[in-house]
């Protein structure tokens, strides 16, 4: 009944969003933002045993201009935070940020004067990866999840609508301290 049935063979229909997402997710180039112990695990993920090349992620770019994904691997100190923000600003849109390890996600065990308590104070984070350090398998899993997120990202008016919706939800969300229930 649909259009599909009247099309000649070899033609596939999809949305531009879907197509673009598919292309974007398959050519994600991470910027090296190795900071501490997690950076070593990030390098391990690129090395033969775990081989991030299987997911099209092995091209670590030194220049932020060529990268789409910033993997913040390690603890961000107060001194590093402005640098981190500058690197982020230099990356071209669209861009994503993966906070690797508890230090980048929340400050981790270093709740003190020197460490930024979560890189989301400085840049917007798309994916948080817990662990200290996360195993390479976990990083690969995060890659797949962020691929999925990119595949389903919206464009144009849809994107704006989604952003407004998320903004509205965030404004009314209860702070953690007011939430009830199990510590989950």
């Amino acid at each position: 009944m649909g259009l599909e049935e009247q099309l000649p063979a070899g033609v596939l229909l999809g949305t531009v969003e879907g197509l673009l997402g598919y292309m974007r997710k398959a050519s994600l180039w991470p910027a090296t933002f190795g900071l501490a112990c997690c950076a070593i695990e990030m390098m391990t993920t690129g090395a033969p045993r775990y081989d991030a090349a299987r997911f099209g992620m092995e091209v670590f770019r030194a220049s932020p201009r060529q990268a789409d994904l910033m993997i913040v691997a390690g603890r961000v100190s107060q001194k590093m935070a402005p640098v981190l923000r500058q690197i982020y600003d230099q990356m071209a849109n669209p861009k994503w940020v993966l906070a690797m390890g508890v230090c980048a996600s929340s400050g981790g065990m270093f709740n003190n004067y020197a460490v930024v308590q979560g890189v989301d104070h400085v840049v917007p984070v798309d994916m948080y990866l817990p662990g200290c350090p996360p195993r390479p398998e976990m990083l690969l899993d995060a890659f797949l999840k962020i691929h999925d997120q990119i595949q389903h990202s919206k464009l144009g008016a849809h994107k704006l609508a989604l952003q407004n919706e998320q903004e509205a939800a965030a404004l009314t969300a209860a702070p953690t301290i007011e939430m009830k229930g199990l510590l989950r």
Binding site: L35, A36, G74, R75, S77, K79, M80, V83, M109, F110, N111, N112, Y113, A114, V115
Partner: peptide
């Protein structure tokens, strides 16, 4: 240097001797 200063030495002053190893 100092871009990775983590304040580990100070943090240890508030933890027990055994916990220090973790830092």
């Amino acid at each position: 240097i100092g871009y990775l200063h983590t304040g580990i030495e100070k943090n240890m002053e508030f933890r027990s001797w055994t916990q220090g190893v973790t830092f």
